[in-house]
Design a protein around this nucleic acid. Structure first.
Lengths: 193, 193
DNA sequence: GCCTTTACGTCACTCTATGACGTAAGTGGC
DNA sequence: GCCACTTACGTCATAGAGTGACGTAAAGGC
């Protein structure tokens, strides 16, 4: 998306560690010991910086987990637009979401990240950045359709997001051998009852 | 529920303040200044105790908001059982939830509490105690019905809870003049599309 | 009066998060 | 090479949510 031709050499002191390094260390430690058991200071020490630096890069500890997934709402919005306008809203959301997860458009570490989220209830907060952004995308999409009022769009966004989350949590602690998109697809199959 | 005949005088030092007093002060301050803007120490000072005492009574700051609503999951479970077995699952949940909120079986301060939740995104966390307990009730109820597998029960619990939450949030910041049960009922009407 | 039980205060400490301030390390202009 | 400018980092101080340890206050039972 960024124009490489206009991408100039950055001015000022360069970052001493990349976001990838920080997140790789964090994900590894959290996978080993759990989210609460590893503090931001622990990660910072392992990477070779101060916790102040970490908090300057990430607004909260939880945002280290999300990382590139925070940008996924744009992919979701685009995927929603590509779905068939004739299908019911819920099926369009299902197609877009499942396709997005299945095709791994987001990030190679996404599965790893979702596993930690699934194991850590406090990360499943509905106010976490990506979930909020997903709901916004879903809300805007639904509201643009004819005959959809704001409450309906609101309910649509919430139920789609929570169904996806339910599927992912299910996948993590009940069926981790299969693909995550399959669990989400199965969850949507149960929703349309 | 407690047997008054066997309710003996409590041994040991009595509580210096009742839970009602603490929660009344907390709700008043939060309604005036907002949830983040009023610390637990502020509430403790106003009540006349130390913050240590508050944290001994309530596991987290958020639990002061929920208060008696934490016991509502039992009322929900009972209300679910009273619904017509012939109706679809989602309608039974709708009837039970809306009836519960409408008839004010929970607590006179419930509306006040929900307003604060609606105004404070971080309190809408899916891991907050009452929401978790509601989902458990809904999950157990759904799983006991014939032809419902565990994933379906899981998705059912999540979508019912989030639909109720969506309705309540909608009520708080879009339609606070009407009754909250009406907003929740409307939300469920949009869900069954 | 003494023992037991329960509630509270004080102190110390961890962890997340933020503001202030000075410094290190890069780019670009001359 | 020197100097301004920009950006990242470290250090320090601070606030707020929790938690464990320890001593004390206030009740009932004997």
């Amino acid at each position: 998306m960024t124009d490489d031709a206009t991408a100039r050499a950055p001015r000022g002191r360069p970052l001493v560690v990349t976001a990838e390094e920080i997140e790789a260390v964090a994900l590894r430690l959290w996978a080993e010991r759990g989210f609460h058991e590893v503090s931001v200071a622990d990660i910072a020490a392992e990477v070779g910086v101060t916790s102040r630096t970490i908090f300057r890069r990430y607004p909260t500890k939880a945002d280290i987990v999300w990382g590139p997934l925070n940008g996924a709402f744009e992919i979701l919005a685009a995927a929603l637009e590509r779905t068939s306008p004739d299908a019911p809203l819920i099926e369009r959301a299902r197609t877009a979401l499942v396709g997005m997860i299945r095709d791994g458009e987001v990030d190679p570490t996404a599965h790893h990240r979702i596993r930690i989220v699934g194991r850590t209830p406090e990360l499943q907060s509905s106010t976490s950045t990506p979930f909020q952004l997903w709901r916004e995308s879903l809300y805007d999409f639904a509201l643009a359709q004819p005959g959809v009022d704001r409450l309906r769009a609101h309910v649509f966004a919430w139920s789609v997001q929570s169904t996806a989350l339910a599927g992912l949590i299910w996948w993590v602690d009940e069926d981790p051998e299969t693909a995550p998109w399959q669990a989400v697809d199965d969850a949507f199959a149960r929703l349309v009852d």
